[in-house]
Amino acid sequence: MSIWEYANPRKFMGWTGRLVPVFVVLAAVLIGVGLTWGFFFTPDDYRMGATVKIIYIHVPSAMMAINAWVMMLVASLIWIVRRHHVSVLAARAAAGVGVTMTLIALITGAIWGQPMWGTWWAWDPRLTSFLILFLFYLGYLALWQAIDDPDTAADLTSVLCLVGSVFAVLSRYAVNFWNQGLHQGASLSLDKEENVADVFWQPLVVTMVGFGLLFVALVLIRTRTEIRARRLHALEARERMG
Protein backbone atom coordinates (compact mmCIF):
# COMPACT_ATOMS: atom_id res chain seq x y z
CA MET A 1 0.00 0.00 0.00
CA SER A 2 1.49 3.33 -1.02
CA ILE A 3 1.74 6.25 1.35
CA TRP A 4 -0.78 8.19 -0.76
CA GLU A 5 -3.47 5.78 0.41
CA TYR A 6 -3.44 7.58 3.75
CA ALA A 7 -4.39 10.80 1.96
CA ASN A 8 -7.51 9.28 0.43
CA PRO A 9 -10.27 11.40 1.97
CA ARG A 10 -12.07 8.57 3.72
CA LYS A 11 -8.92 6.97 5.07
CA PHE A 12 -7.67 10.40 6.07
CA MET A 13 -10.84 11.04 8.07
CA GLY A 14 -10.36 7.67 9.74
CA TRP A 15 -6.79 7.90 10.91
CA THR A 16 -6.84 11.59 11.71
CA GLY A 17 -10.00 11.09 13.77
CA ARG A 18 -8.00 8.78 16.02
CA LEU A 19 -4.83 10.90 16.05
CA VAL A 20 -6.25 14.37 16.69
CA PRO A 21 -7.12 13.77 20.38
CA VAL A 22 -3.61 12.41 21.00
CA PHE A 23 -2.01 15.50 19.47
CA VAL A 24 -4.34 17.86 21.32
CA VAL A 25 -3.57 16.27 24.70
CA LEU A 26 0.19 16.13 24.05
CA ALA A 27 0.24 19.74 22.85
CA ALA A 28 -1.73 20.93 25.90
CA VAL A 29 0.58 19.07 28.30
CA LEU A 30 3.79 20.25 26.66
CA ILE A 31 2.69 23.87 26.31
CA GLY A 32 1.36 23.83 29.88
CA VAL A 33 4.59 22.37 31.27
CA GLY A 34 6.81 24.59 29.13
CA LEU A 35 4.98 27.80 30.00
CA THR A 36 4.78 27.00 33.73
CA TRP A 37 8.46 26.10 33.78
CA GLY A 38 9.39 29.17 31.79
CA PHE A 39 7.18 31.63 33.67
CA PHE A 40 7.74 30.53 37.26
CA PHE A 41 10.89 28.44 37.47
CA THR A 42 13.45 30.37 35.48
CA PRO A 43 15.38 33.41 36.73
CA ASP A 44 14.84 36.88 35.30
CA ASP A 45 17.30 37.84 32.62
CA TYR A 46 20.08 40.16 33.89
CA ARG A 47 19.41 42.60 31.08
CA MET A 48 15.77 42.17 30.16
CA GLY A 49 14.28 41.29 33.55
CA ALA A 50 10.98 39.44 33.59
CA THR A 51 10.04 40.65 30.10
CA VAL A 52 12.20 37.88 28.66
CA LYS A 53 9.49 35.39 29.54
CA ILE A 54 7.29 36.35 26.65
CA ILE A 55 9.90 34.51 24.57
CA TYR A 56 8.05 31.27 25.38
CA ILE A 57 5.14 32.42 23.26
CA HIS A 58 6.90 34.74 20.84
CA VAL A 59 9.54 32.40 19.45
CA PRO A 60 7.40 29.26 19.03
CA SER A 61 4.59 31.19 17.34
CA ALA A 62 7.07 32.90 15.01
CA MET A 63 8.53 29.52 14.07
CA MET A 64 5.09 28.06 13.41
CA ALA A 65 4.19 31.11 11.31
CA ILE A 66 7.03 30.27 8.94
CA ASN A 67 6.53 26.50 9.13
CA ALA A 68 2.90 26.95 8.16
CA TRP A 69 3.93 28.74 4.97
CA VAL A 70 6.46 26.03 4.17
CA MET A 71 3.75 23.44 4.66
CA MET A 72 1.41 25.41 2.36
CA LEU A 73 4.13 25.46 -0.27
CA VAL A 74 4.73 21.70 -0.06
CA ALA A 75 1.01 20.93 -0.04
CA SER A 76 0.40 23.23 -3.03
CA LEU A 77 3.17 21.49 -4.94
CA ILE A 78 1.61 18.12 -4.16
CA TRP A 79 -1.71 19.42 -5.47
CA ILE A 80 -0.13 20.70 -8.68
CA VAL A 81 1.82 17.49 -9.30
CA ARG A 82 -0.58 14.82 -8.04
CA ARG A 83 -3.89 16.70 -7.82
CA HIS A 84 -4.53 15.34 -4.37
CA HIS A 85 -7.56 17.08 -2.91
CA VAL A 86 -6.67 16.52 0.70
CA SER A 87 -3.28 18.17 0.25
CA VAL A 88 -4.69 21.41 -1.07
CA LEU A 89 -7.31 21.50 1.67
CA ALA A 90 -4.50 20.99 4.17
CA ALA A 91 -2.72 23.96 2.59
CA ARG A 92 -5.78 26.10 3.19
CA ALA A 93 -6.01 24.80 6.75
CA ALA A 94 -2.35 25.60 7.36
CA ALA A 95 -2.85 29.15 6.07
CA GLY A 96 -5.54 29.82 8.66
CA VAL A 97 -3.29 28.59 11.45
CA GLY A 98 -0.28 30.37 9.97
CA VAL A 99 -1.95 33.76 9.80
CA THR A 100 -2.98 33.45 13.45
CA MET A 101 0.54 32.47 14.49
CA THR A 102 1.95 35.41 12.53
CA LEU A 103 -0.43 37.74 14.31
CA ILE A 104 0.52 36.27 17.71
CA ALA A 105 4.22 36.67 16.89
CA LEU A 106 3.69 40.29 15.83
CA ILE A 107 1.63 41.18 18.89
CA THR A 108 3.90 39.47 21.43
CA GLY A 109 6.84 41.07 19.65
CA ALA A 110 5.27 44.51 20.05
CA ILE A 111 4.56 43.85 23.73
CA TRP A 112 8.15 42.75 24.22
CA GLY A 113 9.56 45.58 22.15
CA GLN A 114 7.87 48.31 24.20
CA PRO A 115 9.95 47.80 27.41
CA MET A 116 13.10 46.65 25.60
CA TRP A 117 13.43 49.08 22.72
CA GLY A 118 11.06 51.73 24.03
CA THR A 119 8.76 51.37 21.03
CA TRP A 120 5.86 49.15 20.02
CA TRP A 121 6.99 48.97 16.47
CA ALA A 122 10.17 49.56 14.54
CA TRP A 123 10.81 49.00 10.86
CA ASP A 124 13.32 46.37 11.67
CA PRO A 125 13.95 43.72 8.98
CA ARG A 126 12.52 40.84 10.99
CA LEU A 127 9.44 42.74 12.08
CA THR A 128 8.92 44.07 8.59
CA SER A 129 9.32 40.62 7.08
CA PHE A 130 6.70 39.25 9.41
CA LEU A 131 4.34 42.04 8.53
CA ILE A 132 4.86 41.24 4.85
CA LEU A 133 4.32 37.55 5.56
CA PHE A 134 1.06 38.52 7.25
CA LEU A 135 0.00 40.38 4.06
CA PHE A 136 0.86 37.32 1.96
CA TYR A 137 -1.32 35.16 4.21
CA LEU A 138 -4.18 37.64 3.89
CA GLY A 139 -3.96 37.64 0.10
CA TYR A 140 -3.83 33.84 -0.05
CA LEU A 141 -6.84 33.42 2.24
CA ALA A 142 -8.79 36.17 0.46
CA LEU A 143 -8.26 34.38 -2.85
CA TRP A 144 -9.61 31.13 -1.40
CA GLN A 145 -12.64 33.00 -0.17
CA ALA A 146 -13.31 34.76 -3.45
CA ILE A 147 -13.60 31.67 -5.66
CA ASP A 148 -16.66 29.42 -5.62
CA ASP A 149 -15.48 26.42 -7.61
CA PRO A 150 -13.26 24.30 -5.34
CA ASP A 151 -10.92 23.03 -8.06
CA THR A 152 -10.43 26.49 -9.55
CA ALA A 153 -9.72 27.86 -6.09
CA ALA A 154 -7.24 25.06 -5.43
CA ASP A 155 -5.38 25.67 -8.70
CA LEU A 156 -5.21 29.44 -8.40
CA THR A 157 -4.23 29.51 -4.74
CA SER A 158 -1.52 26.93 -5.42
CA VAL A 159 -0.07 29.06 -8.21
CA LEU A 160 -0.26 32.10 -5.95
CA CYS A 161 1.46 30.19 -3.16
CA LEU A 162 4.36 29.20 -5.42
CA VAL A 163 4.85 32.70 -6.80
CA GLY A 164 4.27 34.21 -3.36
CA SER A 165 6.93 31.98 -1.82
CA VAL A 166 9.55 33.26 -4.24
CA PHE A 167 8.53 36.84 -3.55
CA ALA A 168 8.46 36.26 0.20
CA VAL A 169 12.11 35.16 0.09
CA LEU A 170 12.94 38.10 -2.19
CA SER A 171 11.19 40.49 0.20
CA ARG A 172 13.14 39.10 3.13
CA TYR A 173 16.37 39.79 1.29
CA ALA A 174 15.22 43.21 0.12
CA VAL A 175 14.12 44.23 3.60
CA ASN A 176 17.50 43.19 5.02
CA PHE A 177 19.16 45.33 2.42
CA TRP A 178 16.85 48.21 3.22
CA ASN A 179 17.38 48.43 6.97
CA GLN A 180 19.81 46.64 9.25
CA GLY A 181 17.61 46.65 12.34
CA LEU A 182 17.36 46.26 16.08
CA HIS A 183 16.20 42.68 16.46
CA GLN A 184 18.56 40.22 18.05
CA GLY A 185 19.96 37.44 15.90
CA ALA A 186 18.60 33.94 15.87
CA SER A 187 18.01 32.84 19.45
CA LEU A 188 18.75 29.22 18.80
CA SER A 189 21.62 28.92 16.36
CA LEU A 190 24.32 26.77 17.90
CA ASP A 191 27.38 28.90 17.26
CA LYS A 192 26.11 32.34 18.23
CA GLU A 193 27.68 34.19 21.15
CA GLU A 194 24.39 35.84 22.05
CA ASN A 195 22.63 32.53 22.23
CA VAL A 196 20.14 32.22 25.06
CA ALA A 197 21.37 30.50 28.20
CA ASP A 198 20.43 26.90 28.97
CA VAL A 199 18.02 27.86 31.75
CA PHE A 200 15.84 29.69 29.21
CA TRP A 201 16.55 27.33 26.42
CA GLN A 202 15.21 24.11 27.94
CA PRO A 203 11.64 25.28 28.66
CA LEU A 204 11.69 27.03 25.28
CA VAL A 205 12.35 23.73 23.51
CA VAL A 206 9.43 22.18 25.40
CA THR A 207 7.04 24.96 24.35
CA MET A 208 8.32 24.82 20.79
CA VAL A 209 7.59 21.10 20.56
CA GLY A 210 4.23 21.85 22.17
CA PHE A 211 3.45 24.54 19.58
CA GLY A 212 4.54 22.15 16.84
CA LEU A 213 2.06 19.54 18.05
CA LEU A 214 -0.61 22.20 18.47
CA PHE A 215 0.02 23.28 14.90
CA VAL A 216 -0.33 19.71 13.62
CA ALA A 217 -3.50 19.21 15.64
CA LEU A 218 -5.07 22.47 14.43
CA VAL A 219 -4.16 21.76 10.81
CA LEU A 220 -5.65 18.26 11.05
CA ILE A 221 -8.85 19.56 12.64
CA ARG A 222 -9.20 22.30 10.05
CA THR A 223 -8.42 19.92 7.20
CA ARG A 224 -11.14 17.61 8.46
CA THR A 225 -13.53 20.54 8.50
CA GLU A 226 -12.49 21.53 4.98
CA ILE A 227 -13.01 17.96 3.77
CA ARG A 228 -16.51 17.90 5.23
CA ALA A 229 -17.25 21.31 3.70
CA ARG A 230 -15.98 20.11 0.33
CA ARG A 231 -18.10 17.00 0.58
CA LEU A 232 -21.12 19.11 1.45
CA HIS A 233 -20.40 21.40 -1.49
CA ALA A 234 -20.24 18.40 -3.83
CA LEU A 235 -23.50 17.01 -2.54
CA GLU A 236 -25.25 20.36 -2.88
CA ALA A 237 -23.93 20.82 -6.39
CA ARG A 238 -25.22 17.37 -7.34
CA GLU A 239 -28.58 18.20 -5.79
CA ARG A 240 -28.84 21.34 -7.92
CA MET A 241 -27.94 19.45 -11.06
CA GLY A 242 -30.79 17.04 -10.32
Binding site: I132, L135, F136, L138, G139, A142, L143, A146, I147, T152, L156, V159, L160, V163, G164, F167, L170, S171, Y173, A174, V175, F177, W178
Partner: peptide, 26 residues
Protein backbone atom coordinates in the same frame (compact mmCIF):
# COMPACT_ATOMS: atom_id res chain seq x y z
CA UNK B 1 -5.39 35.19 -11.24
CA UNK B 2 -8.43 37.41 -10.66
CA UNK B 3 -9.82 37.59 -14.21
CA UNK B 4 -12.92 35.48 -13.64
CA UNK B 5 -13.87 36.93 -10.27
CA UNK B 6 -16.60 39.30 -9.25
CA UNK B 7 -15.10 42.06 -7.11
CA UNK B 8 -11.76 41.14 -8.64
CA UNK B 9 -10.37 44.68 -8.51
CA UNK B 10 -10.00 44.96 -4.75
CA UNK B 11 -8.63 41.44 -4.43
CA UNK B 12 -6.18 42.21 -7.22
CA UNK B 13 -4.67 45.03 -5.16
CA UNK B 14 -4.45 42.82 -2.10
CA UNK B 15 -2.62 40.12 -4.07
CA UNK B 16 -0.32 42.35 -6.08
CA UNK B 17 0.80 44.98 -3.56
CA UNK B 18 2.77 42.58 -1.31
CA UNK B 19 4.47 41.23 -4.44
CA UNK B 20 5.56 44.79 -5.27
CA UNK B 21 7.59 45.09 -2.04
CA UNK B 22 11.01 44.00 -3.37
CA UNK B 23 10.66 46.11 -6.53
CA UNK B 24 9.69 49.15 -4.48
CA UNK B 25 12.54 48.68 -2.01
CA UNK B 26 15.27 48.28 -4.63
Amino acid sequence: ITVGLRRGGLLLSLLVLPLYVPVLIF
